[in-house]
Computed example of a mutant assay.
Amino acid sequence: MSYPFRAARSRALAVLAVGAALTAGLAACSSSSSGGDDAGKATASSGGSTDSALSQTVASLEKELDAFPVPTDSVDGVADLAGGTVYYIPITSRAPQFAVTQQGLTAAAKAAGLKVQLCDGEGTPTAISACVTQAQHAKAAGIVLDGLAYDMAANAIDAAQKAGVPVVLSNQLPSDRHPVSATFAYAGTAGSPQMVALADWIALDSDGKANVLINEATDGESQIAYVDAGIAEFKKVCPGCTVTVNKISSASFQQIPSSTSSALLKNPDIDYVISEFAEFLQPTQQGVQQASAKVTMTTGASALSTLKELKGGATLAAATAQAAGYQGWVDLDAILRLHAGQTVPDYEIPSRLFTPESAGSLTLTSDAEVSGEWFAPTTYTSDFQKLWGMQ
């Protein structure tokens, strides 16, 4: 059975329509498999919020902040690290978000008298481990790992720490198996808030009757936890919604179109699609085309190219993004605090929900993206430098 949503709202914004339209409808409240052996379905339970409250929530998610949440405690001994090199190792350089974080990290390092060396993790444990080992042998001033699970290169990361190289794991949820230490820290993530925001937007946009496909990255526990947070939000605010999860990964990037197409063909009532990360958006859209499906397309972890596509309104209806340039400054701040033997704070990484209307009001340039002006006033660069004793 399905549960009625407690209020109605006119559905708006663009949909991705390719080929023949598929019939949309409510799915039954039961569990089944879809999208091959790597897919599963979760159906919302009864309950939810009023349309008015949800409208206010969505409106608040689209607003920029008054200020970035910069730490307040100063950092000692930054000048002593001048000339050192910080290695930046994203899970894959394919993701546009990581390119922005690299630029932020490079600017932060320059302000502190350091340099940044990129090493592409290529989505595989072998490449990630090689990058970490390279940084260790180069006696790096620090290693920033972005978007990857510790267990993908645990032996190499452990060895780097034993050699005295500080390691910061960014864009991952803290794990009890890998607790913080004098040489290891986490640097914040906005993955869950982005999935929650997309769930809220879809619940409102669909009159509480969406049939959703989420392309979930399985590269680590955090990526799965982000989607779980989105599913929990659907259950809370959209009891008439059904969510199908299609499991994908960076390592199997070329299989995403066929995997997506298969999930859509097995679930012809799907009318909304979420790509968990923008790096998977294009192959997800290819899968929609292959299935000749008519869906409303959304994505998380957006970058400049994604928001330009969103502004056009023809293929993308909603997107979330996090302040990836600011994240680079946070990553360096964590490295500096580890060097100083000081407590690394629980960083907050701002994120924001965008629609074609709100994206149209942004300055859609690379400089604006890196600066973080889409999220809040950009005084944080000066604020960090003051904390580091560089101003």
Score class of each variant (00 low, 15 high):
residue 276 E to N: 09
residue 314 A to L: 13
residue 301 A to M: 12
residue 271 D to H: 08
residue 296 T to S: 06
residue 281 L to F: 02
residue 315 T to H: 01
residue 290 Q to V: 08
residue 312 G to W: 09
residue 264 L to S: 10
residue 318 A to N: 09
residue 259 S to K: 11
residue 315 T to V: 08
residue 306 T to W: 12
residue 299 T to V: 14
residue 291 A to W: 00
residue 317 A to Q: 12
residue 307 L to M: 11
residue 300 G to W: 15
residue 324 A to Q: 15
residue 321 A to G: 06
residue 316 L to D: 03
residue 324 A to P: 06
residue 297 M to Y: 14
residue 292 S to I: 08
residue 320 T to C: 12
residue 316 L to R: 05
residue 307 L to G: 04
residue 314 A to K: 13
residue 279 E to Q: 15
residue 315 T to C: 01
residue 258 S to L: 04
residue 327 Q to Y: 02
residue 272 Y to T: 09
residue 310 L to P: 00
residue 325 G to V: 02
residue 282 Q to A: 14
residue 271 D to K: 06
residue 307 L to Q: 06
residue 271 D to L: 04
residue 278 A to F: 04
residue 320 T to S: 12
residue 320 T to M: 11
residue 275 S to F: 03
residue 304 L to S: 04
residue 305 S to D: 15
residue 299 T to R: 14
residue 325 G to K: 01
residue 264 L to I: 10
residue 304 L to A: 09
residue 329 W to Y: 08
residue 265 L to R: 13
residue 281 L to C: 04
residue 266 K to N: 12
residue 278 A to K: 03
residue 298 T to C: 11
residue 326 Y to Q: 06
residue 313 G to C: 06
residue 306 T to F: 04
residue 298 T to Q: 11
residue 305 S to F: 09
residue 324 A to R: 14
residue 257 P to K: 13
residue 314 A to G: 05
residue 325 G to W: 00
residue 325 G to I: 00
residue 303 A to L: 13
residue 295 V to Y: 00
residue 298 T to N: 11
residue 328 G to K: 08
residue 260 T to Q: 07
residue 265 L to Y: 01
residue 312 G to Q: 15
residue 301 A to W: 12
residue 324 A to E: 12
residue 322 Q to G: 10
residue 305 S to R: 09
residue 284 T to G: 08
residue 270 I to K: 03
residue 300 G to F: 14
residue 284 T to R: 07
residue 321 A to P: 00
residue 264 L to C: 08
residue 316 L to E: 05
residue 293 A to H: 13
residue 309 E to Q: 11
residue 317 A to N: 11
residue 297 M to L: 15
residue 301 A to G: 13
residue 274 I to D: 01
residue 318 A to H: 07
residue 298 T to R: 13
residue 268 P to T: 01
residue 292 S to H: 06
residue 302 S to F: 06
residue 308 K to H: 10
residue 273 V to D: 07
residue 267 N to K: 06
residue 316 L to F: 09
residue 310 L to E: 03
residue 303 A to W: 04
residue 270 I to H: 01
residue 290 Q to K: 07
residue 301 A to V: 10
residue 270 I to L: 02
residue 325 G to A: 03
residue 316 L to G: 01
residue 322 Q to H: 12
residue 258 S to M: 04
residue 265 L to H: 07
residue 328 G to L: 11
residue 328 G to C: 11
residue 323 A to F: 10
residue 298 T to K: 10
residue 293 A to Q: 07
residue 260 T to S: 09
residue 264 L to Y: 02
residue 321 A to M: 07
residue 292 S to R: 11
residue 275 S to W: 01
